[in-house]
Write a protein that binds this DNA or RNA. Structure first.
Lengths: 344, 344
DNA sequence: CTGAAAGCGCTAACAC
DNA sequence: GTGTTAGCGCTTTCAG
């Protein structure tokens, strides 16, 4: 593979000149420049980025780590962050962890090894060791839903409380008095890592307390998938009385929808459903699913903007509040007859 | 940031010894090793990967370029390829192009600059210049649905023909005689690049020719999205007679489903629908959508396996045939009354 | 305006 | 077993 020396020789100049030309330093005589460019073209020269970054001592790269690329939520964030970073003149390194802490750690090591200028870590799982690793090296990082903020660490805090509260209030205002919250139940190890899921559950607890007139119940769904929701639907009908349900995440809500209908209930006539995340599937169902939207585009954008501010202006880490919003669709309505029909 | 020399000094050894230790070369006395490891720990040392790759002359990295990460199809392939490569001991560079040829080119340049050992390029768009760039540098590549195969270029060829044929035959066997194919219509520039979409359309043309008894019609949907399908549904009802329809891709099929129902038709009683891609949404709809499945996992896996064979055993490029399969769900049934009810 | 040369941090012979 | 040292390919002063 051609190297800078080859180009220099062919063009009859020194490597310094070639370097200047390919880096757009404008002190080279047009004629020389043309000769160099011709040589570059001729040899199909492509600079070795390792050598370059090593010499420069900087990478102008941003790292983006997410839990799973085949998950809408993370993928969209990664996508937007990538595009944004590219537009700001940074190259981007994307990695996924598949929810494995080992992979998280090794991805972070990789990124540190590549001397990224900053790092966006949007993962469900979390490892304090990683935080420490980054902090001690003063690598600017933006996390999501991790409590800490320090000079080199920012945190995006999604306003789950607000979203859940709006969902609950909406149901109440429509006349629902018996409301079920379906939480994802994960085994303890996972549970502790999936902060966002826990936050939503807690948010519901808190919100329910503000409305003593409603009868709130909780059901653990076995996981975070569609099937979990279907199973939960049956169980819910057995164990609870309710006309409205809020799900911890959309797949569960979708499963509930399917489960309730199988059980012969009409949605929203017999039971209203609100999901969480506003995934695209919400629009494809019959009825379309009302859901709390987390603005993924905003997250992706805010993440790299914050990072840039930390990198370029030395701004210390900060907390970025990400609002949520209730997207009304068709799965919510007034309960059929108040008090009389409890779902069943 | 600590460098290898610092570690060496602290441990009272030479850099060569430190290098041996961190690279697992087993010629270091256990005691020395421990000292080195302690120093590494103490200084929080993380090797500079640029320096390492530069010195080694190899990167042990694979690049994966897809059109869009926020698209199920590509994301899943990227995800599986990443996991696979990681398991085979390669680091992975993931980039997306957002369907832009400029971004494709610059991603490829980036990867070449990083001296990846091989490259997986799964994009809808394509640029012959990229092929040339890679070929002249002898970088092993696996493309998808690009005609060429040469010593350093492999190609995955998805069996659209088989899938379309099975879909068509299934409808025919059920008694459908008037069948509509809804193609995505893109403007010419894009069109030429979206090979896969064109291949599917051609496959339908060919398949239809094999069954002269069926009356096949074609409709161009304005794009590849849900809305395009909805619009197409209305237009289809105006312009054609049919009881079965095959869509070029799932979003369109989903849109058609929605559009037909709005128009008062029952699916599958009045009209049967078959989509293409078997995206997850197919299961969430009512009725669930029958669709032709492209095995994304197989693609991801086969891509890195092929790449490894090219890299590690110097195997020349080859064509990898990817089968497709019709996933029967609920959106297909016998037409209500043969000949009498044409959708309308 | 261009060239010579000193690194960037690490690896890998090759000595000892 | 361990140390010395010559690169890897590029950038970047500093002279000229």
């Amino acid at each position: 593979m051609a190297k800078i020396g080859d180009v220099a020789k062919l063009a009859g100049v020194s490597t310094a000149t070639v370097s200047a030309v390919i880096n757009g330093v404008d002190t080279v005589k047009p004629k020389t420049k043309r000769r160099v460019l011709a040589a570059v073209e001729k040899l199909n020269y492509q600079p070795n980025l390792y050598a370059r970054s090593l010499a420069r001592g900087r990478s102008r790269m941003l790292g983006v780590i997410v839990s799973a690329l085949d998950n809408r939520f993370f993928a969209e964030i990664a996508q937007i962050a990538e595009t944004n970073a590219l537009e700001s003149g940074y190259q981007v390194l994307i990695a996924s962890t598949q929810f494995s802490m080992d992979r998280l750690r090794s991805a972070v090591r990789q990124m540190i090894g590549m001397r990224v200028d900053g790092l966006v870590i949007m993962t469900s799982e979390f490892d304090p060791g990683v935080l420490e690793m980054l902090r001690s090296r003063k690598v600017p990082v933006v996390f999501e839903d991790v409590g800490t903020v320090d000079p080199t660490t920012s945190n995006m805090r999604v306003d789950y409380e607000g979203g859940i509260q709006r969902a609950l209030r909406t149901l109440i205002e429509m006349g629902h008095t018996r409301i079920l919250f379906v939480q994802s139940h994960l085994d303890v190890a996972e549970w502790n890592q999936m902060l966002s899921i826990r936050l939503r559950a807690e948010a519901f607890r808190d919100a329910a307390r503000q409305f003593p007139e409603v009868e709130a119940s909780f059901l653990d769904a076995p996981g975070v998938l569609f099937e979990a929701g279907q199973v939960a639907a049956a169980e819910a009908l057995n164990r609870f009385q309710f006309t409205g349900v809020i799900a911890n995440c959309d797949p569960i809500a979708l499963g509930l929808l399917s489960g309730f209908r199988r059980a012969g209930l009409a949605v929203p006539a017999d039971v209203s459903i609100i999901g969480f995340d506003d995934s695209p599937e919400c629009e494809y169902t019959e009825p379309q699913l009302t859901s709390v939207r987390i603005p993924r585009d905003l997250i992706g954008r805010a993440a790299v903007e914050t990072l840039r501010r930390m990198i370029e202006s030395g701004q210390p880490g900060c907390e970025i509040r990400i609002p949520t919003e209730l997207v009304m669709r068709e799965s919510v309505a007034r309960p059929r007859v108040r008090e009389e029909v409890a779902a069943r």
